[in-house]
Design a binder for these strands. Structure first.
Lengths: 342, 342
DNA sequence: ATGAAAGCGCTAACAG
DNA sequence: CTGTTAGCGCTTTCAT
């Protein structure tokens, strides 16, 4: 089926393409009679202007690229939803770029998005979460950002001046640790993620700091490294339970890990929170779906998304924006934690 | 920063744009020396061809629209992931269109995707899951499909001949029901979704059929209607528990509902599966995250996605494809169900 | 092996 | 109020 163009409409209406364009965009007054004649033809032929042609000319596509490491991880759909919600009505459409955390794919997408002339890019996960990222990987993003508005979500690329919006994860971990201590816990373990990852490292640092401030020691064996998955949580909790002394509380780098930890603990015959307090991080929907409901540090994913879009939008509009937008974490006490009564 | 074009490269290299285009696309032999000269310029200026211009000409964008009702529902990211996985390497990029199940937004996106000249559309949720959909809503999709390859996932629009890939949900429900009966259950309740929805109605029909085939009655009060959410599951289980007689098993329209049901049951002091068997549907990751792990009917979401893409791709390539692709459901027995021993 | 030129479908001056 | 025309950046004959 051949695409009908503005020319077809114009000639059939006996006017010029300019006139049709005018009624399409309401960009100049058109005599009511010709306008309605054109409108009728448009309806009749189901004419829809070709956005490519328009974008080519206007140098804007109304399209934004969203790069995520894994759309299957509920964290990202929540953020996406926040972006979408905020953008709704502003007429943007989103390319969803799933990278599986592979830097190679991130590079590809950065490339593709530029070719496709997106108006902006929101970048999450992968290389921007590394404690040390290679100069080439950094440079690539910086170069893209020099041409296209770009904002980093929950990440950073030291040495660059990129715009970013991020949860204060250190603060969140500190809050959780403080809470645990106030509840009487002294022997607390931390189940971390990969140590190469800022999201894990920041929390660990905050955890240790607060412990030390309270004159509590963090022996080496109380920090276990996993990979953010439920399986890691299961495995590491198993390790914890196998040790001669068992901590009274376990702080986890994220909710998945915490859920895995809880499962293993329960299967081992413990009662949560009676025998052990377990705290997560993120507050993904899963956290409140399990039983016992998880005490966790909430990242406001929707806020992360909507703020990211707001910043990006200002960048696109060439308005002034501050470099860093911080989203406050929030401790959500539910059922997996309790006060330690000796 | 002004975009550098093929003209800039051409003039700087002292050749015509045609030659540059040829090295870009490897579409005709170019003398090695000029080729490398051009290549160097391309690297140097970080030149990237404008995909809009190319697409305008070629009439293909390498872009596909994916319409989902709610990206926050883990079912859809799983399907998306399947699509993405299958499409990887074929060089497609995806517009993710989140409709919140609003028909109005579905219409908008159908419109937008056409304007943006996507090569194809994958449609899930919303109007295609209605037991009766208004003719206008049907027509709109049919009209789009007449111009752009389109496939329906887990849905249908009676009266049209659209391509679709879908799980045999009726069969899944039948399998689950049969399993329950074989396990000795006689008094089984079904927690449904909205009755206006095919995904709920099909399962209910299958449930009743299998019950009847086994000479079992399904009294009215054993079918409860909710809205697919965890809250509905909680509320309806509450209702079930409040009644004088309690079923020995509950079949749920989806996993969310089942999880809600389990939570309420546990809070009411029941032990699952000892006091009651609960079965879900879908097998989203949540199903195996909770404790006890959920017995459920697995929809192979990744298959749904990859098959949908395969069908769409053939449609795009104008190859022959069969109208309907069925994905087989699979009963996954885990911990929330048990044999009824009198 | 390379260049000239004609569009792809649309918008935006510029002229009436 | 409306038409003419020059591109937007690229690909693709058709020549050379």
């Amino acid at each position: 089926m051949k695409q009908v163009t503005i020319y077809d409409i114009a000639s059939e209406a006996g006017v010029s393409v300019a006139t049709v364009s005018r009624v399409l965009n309401n960009t100049a007054p058109v005599k009511a009679s010709t306008r309605s004649k054109i409108m009728k033809l448009i309806k009749q032929h189901q004419f829809q202007p070709n956005a490519l042609a328009r974008s080519l000319l206007k140098k804007e596509t109304g399209t934004i690229g969203v790069i995520v490491p894994d759309i299957t991880n509920p964290f990202f759909p929540e953020v996406f939803s926040g972006i979408d919600h905020e953008a709704r009505g502003k007429g943007f459409t989103f390319f969803l770029c799933n990278t599986h955390g592979e830097y190679e794919r991130e590079s590809q997408y950065l490339h593709i998005l530029r070719e496709k002339q997106v108006d902006g890019i929101i970048f999450m996960g992968g290389r921007i979460n590394l404690t040390k990222c290679t100069p080439e990987l950094v440079e690539e993003v910086a170069e893209t950002a020099a041409r296209i508005p770009l904002v980093l979500v929950n990440g950073n690329l030291p040495g660059t001046e990129l715009h970013r919006v991020a949860t204060d994860e250190g603060k969140g971990a500190a809050m959780a640790t403080q809470y645990l201590i106030e509840q009487g816990h002294r022997d607390i373990a931390y189940i971390a993620g990969m140590s190469t990852t800022t999201t894990s490292a920041q929390k660990l640092r905050a955890f240790k700091r607060v412990m030390n401030q309270n004159n509590l020691d963090v022996p080496k064996e109380r920090v276990l490294y996993g990979d953010f998955t439920m399986e890691a949580g299961e495995r590491l909790m198993d390790e914890i339970l196998r040790a001669p002394e068992r901590p009274t509380a376990v702080l986890c780098v994220n909710d998945f890990t915490a859920v895995g930890a809880i499962k293993t603990a329960i299967k081992a015959g413990l009662s949560i929170p009676n025998d052990m307090t377990i705290v997560g991080f993120d507050d993904i929907p899963l956290a409140s779906s399990i039983f016992p409901e998880l005490t966790t540090v909430k990242q406001q994913m929707d806020q992360l998304g909507s703020q990211a879009f707001q910043v990006l939008h200002k960048l696109i509009m060439k308005e002034k924006v501050k470099r860093l937008t911080v989203i406050e974490p929030e401790l959500v006490v539910r059922e997996s934690s309790r006060e330690l009564t000796p």
